[in-house]
Design a protein around this nucleic acid. Structure first.
Lengths: 189, 189
DNA sequence: GAATTCATTTGACAAATGTCACAAAATCAT
DNA sequence: ATGATTTTGTGACATTTGTCAAATGAATTC
């Protein structure tokens, strides 16, 4: 099995049993992609049949608010990048765009959903991904309400220092929920 | 089967097949509770083996930020009330407290999780609940970033008018993410 | 490597919101 | 019912943050 496929599968199957044959079935619907910086993976308001796993590179997700981009998350190595709305057959609310030229695993959602229906191991695997996403969202809300802007900046800097080396501050400011000028002033201290 | 049990199960099993015997297995781990206003269902930082479904009444969830309560959600009739952290065997980050004297279904999480392992229908049922929660969290983030305070207030008023009749404005202000004084001033217009 | 585009910083000012203090209104308990 | 508690509203002021404008610095393209 491709090393990248194995990394991905192992990352989300620590709590459940996944047989070799189930792993092989999942991998049938994976492909490796090499795409350039600024490539748009998923467009806002469109249905899309694929989710992605970042092997190497960086992805951002944003939506438009009165013409201004609001960044919702960044995915680096070993992170998922996709839209839960797409998974549920709805149009994506966000645009997913590469911040760096990247190597990705693309995941055929329809095929995986078909497997989930009858293979309980695969159902557990996919649901572990959704659960992890729910935890991520809870954390995001928790920190957005619990912390001042400075604390949000310092915590992000502490927990995800790579982001500051690879993602423009303009995007990070929007992710934290402040203007880029305000972030710049916070950093000046 | 108890009518309340049926309402609960039907609400989360519209997209998947659930046999009568699976339904019966799930219901084995349900109970009906009648509890008074201000009763604490789940305490912050504690592990807890139950989740709840509101048959009649109102629940709020909050955590403490420097001694001040930050309200995260309200559950009314036919809503779930629980902690995803508890479901994953971790301490809850939030306190769940009754805003009104309520009738609830209590759900034994350990028992349901055991059923999920081998019954794919029950796995799909539980995961539908978690998925719905992830959608709820996404919406919450989306609206908190997309809308001005006034718009958040107006949208909440439009979409969930019952909340304003049953939940104190102090809690609602904290849910929207503004001080109670600011909410009071917004309402004055 | 020069030109162009993009990202970041800084200043000046306006707008939104928080905080503190207290008053008014509604609700609860005895 | 009435006193006590909780909830809501309002004023004055401080603080934070946003907005607009411009300058500087960094990166990319041809």
């Amino acid at each position: 099995m491709d090393t990248a496929f194995k990394t991905f599968i192992d990352h989300f199957s620590t709590n459940y049993q996944l047989s070799d044959s189930s792993k092989a079935e999942i991998c049938n619907h994976f492909s490796i992609l090499h795409l350039d910086k600024k490539h748009v993976l998923i467009e806002e308001n469109k249905r899309h049949d694929f989710a992605y796993f970042v092997v190497k590179g960086a992805v951002r997700s944003y939506y438009l608010k009165d013409g201004v981009e609001v960044n919702t998350w960044f995915a680096l190595e070993n992170d998922m990048a996709g839209s839960l709305h797409n998974f549920k057959d709805n149009p994506s609310r966000e645009t997913l765009e590469l911040v760096e030229s990247s190597t990705l695993i693309s995941i055929n959602l329809k095929k995986i959903k078909a497997l989930m229906l009858h293979n309980i191991q695969i159902a557990h695997f996919v649901n572990a991904i959704i659960e992890e996403y729910a935890f991520f969202l809870e954390d995001k809300i928790y920190f957005s309400q619990m912390m001042s802007s400075i604390d949000k900046y310092l915590i992000l800097l502490d927990k995800e220092p790579q982001i500051f080396q690879r993602i423009p501050l303009t995007y990070i400011a929007s992710y934290i929920g402040i203007s880029r000028e305000t972030l710049s002033r916070l950093r000046a201290k």
